[in-house]
Structure formats: structure tokens, C-alpha cells
Simulated assay, not measured.
Amino acid sequence: MTECKPCVTLMEERLKLTKASTTAKVDATLYRRIIDGLRYLVHTRTDIAFVVGYVSRFMEDPREDHWAAVKRLLRYVKGMVDHRIIFPRTGESWLQLTVFSNADMTGDIDGRRSTSGVLVFLGSVLIS
């Protein structure tokens, strides 16, 4: 995937993958190796955590549609490799942490389980 076209979104909007997929099987060993590498990358790239967790559900029997989601994630990582988070130090402000959480009730097609997510903002606030 060294010559792939980078993308700016992690996954398709409203993507619903299932373990009961009827698409062609893919190489399970390669799929697992890629997922393992992405799980390691989550430690420094928390923006991919949800999608890595989502595609990890299909490591037992990966299919073409699961593989397509992983390839899109790899294209996103390639496109965002130069992005960084910088917290500049200023004397006139302090950092404020804001956290939101949500869950999609029974969003998992296979087990009817909920998937939760967290959104974290860390921003500077001027002291007045």
C-alpha cells in the first residue's frame, strides 16, 4: 500500500460490517498482522481507536468487505502521518479538558451489543 492514495476519513459513513458476510475470504494471517500493528499504533494515534476496535471484531474469519475497511484505515494513516498535536505554552491561558461520551444502542449487527465512543477536547482558555 506504499503507492496508495491517502484519504482524510477513517471509514465510510454508516458502515455496517457483519460476521455473517458472504463476500470472499481473505488471508486471515495477513489481516491479523495488520490489525495487530494498528492496535500498537493506537497508543500514539488515538484517533483510529474506534475503527481499529471495529475491524478487530472480524479477525476470526475476515472477508473482503472487512479487508476494504482495513485498507481505507491504512490509507487514512498514510494521509495523516505528518499531522501532530501541539500544545503551545502561553502565560495568558490555561488548558481546559472537555469530554463527551455516547453509545449506539444495539448497533452491532451480530450480537446486538452497544458500541460506545468518547470525544475529548483539550483547549486553551484565556485567563481574564
Rank of each mutant, 00 (worst) to 15 (best):
D108Q: 00
S101D: 07
L15F: 00
W67Y: 14
V81K: 13
S116C: 08
I109G: 01
S21M: 05
T22L: 12
K78Y: 03
C4K: 06
D47E: 15
R89W: 00
I109T: 13
K25A: 15
S56M: 06
R63N: 04
N102M: 04
S114N: 08
T9L: 02
Y31P: 13
F100E: 09
D61A: 13
K16M: 07
R89E: 10
S93C: 11
F100Q: 12
G91E: 14
G111V: 09
V70S: 01
V81Y: 00
I86T: 11
T18G: 04
R57K: 14
V125T: 15
R112S: 10
T44Y: 05
E13Y: 12
F58A: 08
E92C: 10
K16V: 15
H83I: 07
V99E: 06
K19P: 02
L122K: 10
R72Q: 14
V118H: 02
L73S: 08
K16F: 01
V118N: 01
T18Q: 07
L122W: 02
Q96A: 11
L73N: 06
E92N: 14
Y31C: 06
T9E: 06
K71E: 10
I48R: 03
V51A: 13
A69P: 08
D27A: 05
T106A: 15
V118R: 04
K19T: 11
V118K: 03
R72V: 03
G107C: 13
K25S: 14
S114E: 08
D108W: 02
T44C: 09
C7E: 07
I127H: 14
L97W: 01
V81S: 13
F87L: 15
S124E: 12
R33C: 12
V125P: 03
N102E: 12
R32M: 04
I48T: 07
R14T: 11
S21D: 13
A28H: 06
T46N: 09
Y76L: 06
T22A: 11
T46D: 01
E3F: 08
M1A: 12
K71A: 03
I85M: 15
